[in-house]
Design a protein around this nucleic acid. Structure first.
Lengths: 216, 216
DNA sequence: TGCGTTTCTGAACTATGTTGACTATACTGA
DNA sequence: TCAGTATAGTCAACATAGTTCAGAAACGCA
């Protein structure tokens, strides 16, 4: 039955064409600028055809999001090789933010557009299923913290998950603020990231003193 | 000329009505849900009338944004009273993020919607004019860092402006990530903020050690 | 060749921001 | 008091969206 297979192949090809066109538009102009009619023009099909391949515009966004997340993971993979856990943590912070600075529209799509887009990555119900791509990537950071604690590079107290969420949200802040209103920041974003990572790691390396209360 | 004055008053009143209706919609449903027709319904005027009072939808957003910024400043003012500069810095971080958690739509409007909205607060050309409301509020944080340095609560090196931008963006990260996809974070946002502020301040209190390179 | 299935499209529906021609009201000066 | 004018407000329309659905076209099979 070669005909059935060819049909399946053609169907997959057109679906891919739609995604390719959509991706180009999103990377060039952002998700807001993605319209069904523009995709239709690009692939030379009527806009209505797209609905035979995707439920709606949001579904296209979700798929692009999943792909961008793979991009982010590929981007981050090399830093996982850094043996020194302290340096690995610094590398993670720098690499994550660099991804955002170098791929602004992908970063926006992933983390600044629609909560629904992240739900394919981090399903809402089953919290922390290690099979979810988001959870896997996040474990990458948690593991680095565990290793740093084990190596004595940072204080052994403190939940590694909470620590990972802390650096993630902090780094996200630098990227998102830069992407939303770059001109407001006087300091180079990369310099802020470096300072932030250094300061946090130094703060975690320090033994507790009497000036500091309840690290919660 | 009481007639002219009454007309001006009426004009100002309708303008205020428009803003009140718009504010209600934005606080309840977010800026995306703000439509000219909804405002028209609420004030019992045709949507076209709104254009006699505001240039366009964005101009309404800008005005609401300016008001929300005043709200944020009012929110933050009490922490300015804290004498101990170390505690004041902690208070600033907590208070800022609490504003975001308690007034999510205002926070979104201010810092997560449209860069243009911030331009009334932080005009793009004349960088760091102390008359801009954004600059004034930001100086609040810079001053706290300067005081902390002067008091020896944190290391004296490090540009206070860069430090202020660092904590601002980091705190922004916790708020914006929470507002965009709360369910992804396992740790309570407030706990992340506390840990973040403590860690950063501890990192800044520490004298430089050999493990730490180039604080940039 | 004819029939049924699959694929695609045109036209429409709703909703949106925005505009410009028009109307109605209020005011002014005689 | 009234005619003329300025102001305020509205209606209907335009363009652009996402989305749907009835019907057309293409395709495959007997």
């Amino acid at each position: 039955m070669g005909i059935v297979e060819r049909k399946e192949r053609q169907r997959a090809e057109l679906r891919e064409q739609i995604l390719t066109a959509a991706r180009r538009i999103v990377l060039d102009e952002g998700f807001e600028a993605l319209t069904m009619r523009k995709i239709g023009d690009a692939i030379e099909y009527s806009p209505a055809t797209i609905y035979l391949y995707f439920e709606n515009r949001e579904a296209i966004g979700r798929q692009l999001c999943a792909e961008s997340f793979e991009h982010l993971i590929a981007y981050m993979t090399p830093v996982g090789q850094i043996a020194d856990p302290y340096e690995r943590l610094r590398g993670i912070g720098r690499c994550y933010t660099r991804f955002g600075f170098e791929n602004p529209e992908e970063y926006r799509l992933l983390f600044m557009t629609d909560p629904a887009f992240m739900e394919a990555l981090f399903p809402p119900d089953n919290t922390a299923d290690p099979k979810d791509p988001g959870e896997r990537a996040f474990q990458f950071v948690v593991d680095a913290f565990r290793a740093a604690q084990a190596a004595g590079a940072i204080r052994p107290d403190g939940d590694p998950v909470a620590l990972a969420e802390m650096v993630w949200t902090a780094c996200h802040g630098v990227v998102s603020m830069t992407l939303t209103c770059n001109h407001v920041l006087e300091t180079r974003p990369e310099a802020i990231v470096d300072m932030l990572c250094d300061t946090i790691l130094r703060g975690l390396a320090t033994p507790l003193t009497s000036t500091v209360r309840s690290a919660s």
